[in-house]
Design a protein around this nucleic acid. Structure first.
Lengths: 166, 166
DNA sequence: AACATCTGCTACGGTTTCCGTAGTATCTGA
DNA sequence: TCAGATACTACGGAAACCGTAGCAGATGTT
């Protein structure tokens, strides 16, 4: 829920400001996306993983237990490619592969947490910077930002899914 | 410049709200990062490029003219890998490689714009969603968000650079 | 129940990518 | 002038990607 009153009643000047800021946000979002990908790349490389591996791990964390097939579909990877991703994650001790007791063809993936401190250490710099910069906003502003991030993520998910069909 | 008054004088309740929201923002940021990577993956695949290729193209766009070496350093790729990336981008008509007239060993990269409409079309869904969702915030909130995104990008860049040394 | 069909995952192998090394061209400094 | 540094690319072995096929097990039909 956005708490603002939106763009209902604004004068021409505010409307211009709104449009300019909107464009700026979309631009920044692309730049941020690239930058966070590069950070992810550095961290993945440190653990001898591919970029996509860490993304998959993140999704497993949030949706466990999940099957390799469901994960592959969500990520947009070929099932055979997913096998390789999971091999690396399993070899590194990031996940467990268990047989599904109900459907015995299937496998369920679970994230292991032992190595979280190693990851946390690499993210420590970013974490501190975020804490520092967030101190410059009011709580109301922070809540608007959190709301914005949630909704943008949902928009990204929809856009990604809609790109599968054509 | 953040316009909020920051966390100077807040009661215990507001402090708790602030901490909770801060954690939520950092969580959302990771989730957003993953989601935008997946979107990027789909779009890259559509053009028969690797994920990293589009990231490089974005950086070339923003920093042209730039040399392959400088780009490789910024992205954290091996120079030889960058040659492969640039081969794909050049073959697809995304960039031009020109000899640097000053330093004739060197090469300068420039982004071509002819294919922008194709990319724009794939981003259209995301673009529309963003416009819709941004309409729910006040201009002040949007400016705080834009500011936040800029500073978060800068934080990401610093964190990435600091991870190179060790 | 028996059978065909479908589904979930992984092995296999050809193609592509990755990246360490080396090579060429050019610049820089002594 | 020339030794060394620098910018990029070619080459080749190792790894990843992904289409196909294979196996195990679930599901549906008669």
């Amino acid at each position: 829920m956005a708490t603002g009153r939106g763009s209902g009643d604004e004068n021409a000047d505010a409307k211009r400001r709104r449009r300019r800021t909107g464009t700026e946000i979309k631009e920044s979002l692309r730049e941020l996306s690239v930058q966070l990908s590069l950070l992810n790349h550095r961290i993945s490389a440190h653990f001898e993983l591919r970029d996509i591996d860490f993304d998959c791990l993140e999704i497993i964390r949030r949706h466990e237990p999940i099957s390799p097939g469901a994960l592959a579909r969500r990520v947009g990877l070929h099932a055979a490619t997913m096998t390789g991703v999971l091999d690396r994650l399993e070899r590194g001790g990031w996940i467990d592969r268990e047989r599904d007791p109900v459907d015995r063809r299937a496998v369920v993936l679970r994230a292991r947490r032992e190595r979280n401190p190693e990851v946390f250490r690499l993210y420590a710099g970013m974490n501190t910077s975020m804490d520092e910069l967030m101190a410059d906003y009011t709580v109301d502003q922070l809540e608007a930002i959190a709301d914005f991030l949630h909704r943008t993520t949902a928009a990204g998910r929809d856009a990604t899914d809609n790109l599968s069909a054509p």
